[in-house]
Simulated assay, not measured.
Amino acid sequence: MAKPSDTSRQLAELLKPGAQICDLGAGGGRHAWLFASENFNVVAVDRNQQALKALEQVNREYPNCQVVGDDILSFLTSCESTFDAIVMWDCVHHVVQGERAFDDLARCLRQRIADQGYLLITFLSDICYPDQLSSQDRYLLSREAAARQLQGAFTHGWQLVVEKEKSFSIPAAEGMQGTSIVVGNYSATRLVRLYKAVPFSGDGVPGDTDVFHAAVQAVAGLQLCRESH
Rank of each mutant, 00 (worst) to 15 (best):
M1F: 01
A2E: 15
K3I: 05
K3A: 12
K3D: 06
L14Y: 04
K16R: 13
K16F: 02
K16C: 03
P17W: 03
I21Q: 03
I21C: 02
G27P: 09
G27K: 07
G27C: 06
A32N: 12
W33M: 12
F40W: 13
A44C: 01
D46I: 00
Q49Y: 00
L52D: 05
L52A: 06
L55A: 01
Q57V: 12
N59S: 00
N59A: 02
E61K: 15
Y62K: 14
P63L: 00
C65Y: 04
V67W: 02
V67F: 01
G69S: 15
S74A: 06
S74R: 10
S78I: 09
S81R: 14
F83N: 00
M88D: 07
C91S: 15
V95E: 00
V95K: 01
V96R: 01
G98F: 01
E99V: 11
A106I: 02
C108V: 12
L109M: 08
D115N: 13
G117T: 02
L119W: 02
L120G: 04
I121A: 02
Q132G: 05
L133M: 14
L133P: 10
S135V: 06
Q136R: 13
Q136T: 14
R138C: 03
Y139S: 08
Y139Q: 09
L140G: 07
L141T: 08
S142M: 08
Q149Y: 06
Q149C: 09
F154C: 04
F154R: 06
G157D: 04
W158C: 04
E163I: 06
K164S: 13
K166G: 10
K166S: 07
S167M: 08
S169N: 06
I170C: 04
I170K: 11
M176P: 00
M176S: 04
S180C: 13
I181K: 10
V183D: 02
N185M: 05
Y186N: 10
T189G: 03
L191D: 09
L191C: 11
L194P: 05
Y195L: 04
A197N: 13
S201D: 09
G202H: 12
D203I: 13
D203M: 11
V205F: 07
V205M: 13
G207I: 08
D208W: 10
H213W: 07
Q217A: 10
A220Q: 15
G221F: 12
L222N: 15
Q223K: 13
R226C: 07
S228Q: 15
H229V: 14
